Simulated scan of single mutants.
Amino acid sequence: MAENAESAARTGPAPARLALRTADLDEARSAIGTMYYDPRIDLLDSRRPLDTDFSMARLGPFTVGELCCGADVRMRFEDLRAYHVDLPLTGRLAWRQGAQQTRLATPDRAAVFQPEGRTTLERWDGACRLLAVKVAPEALVRHLELLVGDSLRAPLRLAPTMDLTAGPGRSWARLVRLVTDEIDDDHGLLRQPLLAAELQDSLLTGLLLATGHPWREALDRPAPHGFAHPVKRVVEVIRGRPEHPFTTTELAEVGGVSARWLQEVFRRQTGTTPMGYLREVRMERVRDELLRADPAATTVSDVAYRWGFGHLGRFADKYRARFGELPSQTLRSR
């Protein structure tokens, strides 16, 4: 029987969630099938009962979760039809896909799966608690096209493993950890549209930087110099709709350039990044609201949070550096 099961679908940026603690094999199979893929599950040691602990959520093109089976199991899947990464926090995971040899995922090395190819988790040991990340393939491919500024002329195949000990892999794992920690927080950053969209964008970019693929080197090349018109267009759009949950890739589409080009040329021409400029404009809007607000009916935190500033202390420091006073002083000046 399930000890605790929760499934909640919400509107806006909040993900659909499913949490499950159970010793029932069919319930575990159904939960994984609902959020990820339909599995066949076998217990490898009948002396050790199943004790699953799943917490999973959907966020845009991602499904993320923290999962542990509590017993050694084998899982088999047909084509996943999605990119997928398993990042063990503890224990080990033996796996293979298609005709590849069996590999081992550990807290130092993640397993990276392609959308096609029969997938087998040969032994997911009972001590292995992992972060599981499913990525919609169309979202990842489109994101890469925006980053390099060109259509892909071959299928995107990711390297089968990711180094989690240093560099982009370790950073991306930390970002995934942040997202999974926020799943159950009804007042956290995943419920804030302006931040959730940027976080999804960062997860896509981070994955493409943390894994090997034929376009990986292109992501490190400096962008060529270009005309200023795309930057001007992006500035106009930001100033016209700062309340929109823009991402770098969406702004690159607005400018008709690659995201990499926009990042570098925008910084050369304005001294900041597109997202940095967006935050500056939003801070101006916060100040405008505080100047007009009734101190008895308004709080700084409510206004700041509405404009996408989730860390109030950091926001106050930047606000004072920009305007020479604390936001609370602006509010009381009315």
Rank of each mutant, 00 (worst) to 15 (best):
G167Q: 02
G167T: 02
G167N: 00
P168A: 11
W172I: 11
R174E: 15
R174C: 08
R174N: 15
L175I: 03
L175W: 03
R177E: 08
L178W: 13
T180C: 12
T180N: 10
D181A: 05
D181I: 02
I183D: 07
I183W: 03
I183Q: 03
D184L: 10
D184P: 00
D185C: 02
D185K: 06
D186W: 07
D186E: 13
H187R: 12
L189T: 15
L190I: 15
R191F: 01
R191L: 11
Q192D: 06
P193S: 06
L195Y: 03
A196V: 03
A196Q: 05
E198G: 09
L199F: 11
Q200T: 09
D201A: 11
D201L: 01
L204Y: 07
L204R: 07
T205D: 12
T205N: 07
G206I: 14
L207D: 04
L208T: 05
T211Q: 12
T211Y: 13
G212P: 14
H213F: 13
A218Y: 03
L219A: 05
P222T: 09
P224W: 14
H225G: 09
G226P: 11
F227Q: 07
F227W: 04
P230S: 14
K232R: 06
V234H: 02
V234Y: 00
V235F: 04
E236I: 00
E236G: 05
I238H: 04
I238E: 01
I238P: 01
R241F: 03
R241L: 05
E243N: 10
E243R: 04
H244R: 06
P245M: 05
T248W: 00
T248M: 08
L251P: 00
L251Q: 01
A252V: 02
E253Q: 12
G255P: 01
G256C: 01
G256D: 02
S258D: 06
S258V: 14
A259N: 13
A259P: 03
R260Q: 10
R260M: 03
R260F: 00
W261M: 02
Q263P: 02
V265Y: 11
F266Q: 07
F266D: 01
Q269W: 07
T270E: 09
T270R: 06
T270Q: 04
T272V: 10
T273V: 12
P274C: 01
M275F: 01
L278W: 04
L278Y: 08
R279W: 13
E280L: 15
E280M: 14
M283C: 14
R285S: 06
V286P: 07
V286I: 15
D288I: 12
R292V: 10
A293C: 01
A296G: 10
A296V: 07
A297P: 02
T298Q: 08
T298G: 04
T299C: 09
T299A: 06
